[in-house]
Amino acid sequence: MSRLSCHGGTSIYISPLGDRAVRLEFGTEISEQINDLVHRAAFFIREKQPVFGVEEIVPAYSSLTLFYNPLVVLYEDVVFEIEVCLKELIERKEMKREFKGGVELSRRLITIPVLYGGEVGPDLQEVASLNGITAKEVVELHSKPIYRVFMMGFAPGFPYLGGMSEKIATPRRKEPRVHVEAGSVGIAGSQTGVYSVGSPGGWQIIGKTPVPLFDPYVVNKDPVLFHAGDMIQFIEINKVEYNKIFKEIEAGIYPIDIVSYPGGEGKRDLDGRCEQ
């Protein structure tokens, strides 16, 4: 493992993940600052200063993994280039304080309509009683914050979200369900998430969104709705609205509410185009 120290106190640990990937560690805790650094480094390497031989750039909570082709570039060479790249990134930060200019992240705020409770949210009451509050309060607490997508993983299109209120934290179900439908919104411990594909699962299911998070059969379009670094807010909808949105999605005319964050207006249609 090699350690890259940069003046300003940032230490980045670089180590191999097998013979085809290299892992950069920016910290060991869940923190927005560290996660920002991960996403900035990912953005910088992807957009501004590509590293020769690198084929995939995969962010996690506090680390960034770069997959490369060892037929093209060897470990030592890739580490050398990454070090040059990171020094450049960190110096820009020091010169421009707030990452203005080239390395500013463009964040998106995506609003996800959710039908809470009832058939599609069978564990809502359980989450309420275990926390000594009403179902209505659970819905309010869940749809209030703006959540951050720290990373993607677990399943195609699944976001690891941060920012849920501890007041609705609930342990996983003792008896996992054999099948949880795609779109189901759940709580597991202090985490909340949306099942992007149908699968067995032990999360407490409190609602469901009609908006698809993953479609592998799209052509020339993004197969997933969320990306690491996005911000997400849930809004409560009723059964009538749910059915209306469901039909609009089937017909391909539902405009997913995506704006730049913070501030800025703009909606994205299903083709992923942004209308300003």
């Binding site: 990912a42 084929e55 750039i57 997959f67 993607m152 993983g153 677990f154 195609p156 997933v224």
Partner: peptide, 10 residues
């Protein structure tokens, strides 16, 4: 499949 691990695709 290469190029989709960053969105959770194996």
């Amino acid at each position: 499949r290469t190029g989709f691990q960053h969105v959770g695709i194996s």
